[in-house]
Simulated scan of single mutants.
Amino acid sequence: MTTSPCESDALSVEFEEEPGDVLVAHIHGALDLSTAPALDRALSRYLEEVRARRVLLDLRDMEFLGCQGVTVLVRVARWAKVHTGCEPPCLVGLSSCGRRLLALVEVIDMFSVQDSVEGALTGE
């Protein structure tokens, strides 16, 4: 597992590569106006370096999802859409408030949603 500094005490991300070209990003903390740019840079850097067919964004330890955080998630979905053979990103452990926010801004359909990383990896 690779930890990437997000230049903020309020947010951190750990990257883990799984068999089958799966990238898991474990996101911890608040994803808001002040932390979103750093996460966006960390995700962009990592996605440029690895070959990922699936991207799982583990949000189980995310305390807050603001509008700027939604923008970061949408950028990952757009990245996946333009990369041939890449599936839509999977949001793992998305809170009910997060689901409502993504549905409200009409982007929830850009993602699959799972309760656990294990479930996302096995398709259960």
Rank of each mutant, 00 (worst) to 15 (best):
L56Y: 06
L56N: 03
L57R: 10
L57A: 07
L57Q: 01
D58E: 08
D58I: 03
L59P: 03
R60S: 04
R60C: 04
D61Q: 14
D61P: 00
D61Y: 01
D61K: 09
M62Q: 15
E63L: 12
F64S: 12
L65A: 11
L65V: 08
L65Q: 08
C67K: 04
Q68C: 11
V72N: 08
V72A: 12
L73Q: 11
L73R: 08
V74C: 03
V76S: 01
V76R: 02
W79H: 10
W79D: 07
W79S: 03
W79N: 07
A80Q: 07
A80I: 04
V82S: 15
V82H: 09
V82A: 09
H83N: 13
T84L: 05
T84G: 09
G85Y: 06
G85F: 03
G85P: 14
C86D: 00
E87I: 06
P88N: 02
C90E: 05
C90H: 04
C90P: 00
C90N: 03
C90R: 04
L91Y: 11
L91D: 01
V92R: 01
G93W: 00
G93Y: 02
L94E: 13
L94M: 14
S95T: 15
S95K: 05
S96V: 14
G98Q: 10
G98L: 06
G98I: 08
R99E: 13
R100H: 12
R100G: 11
L101V: 15
L101Q: 04
A103T: 14
L104G: 09
L104S: 13
E106W: 01
E106D: 15
E106S: 14
E106N: 14
V107M: 03
V107L: 02
V107G: 04
I108P: 00
I108C: 02
M110Q: 15
M110D: 10
M110Y: 08
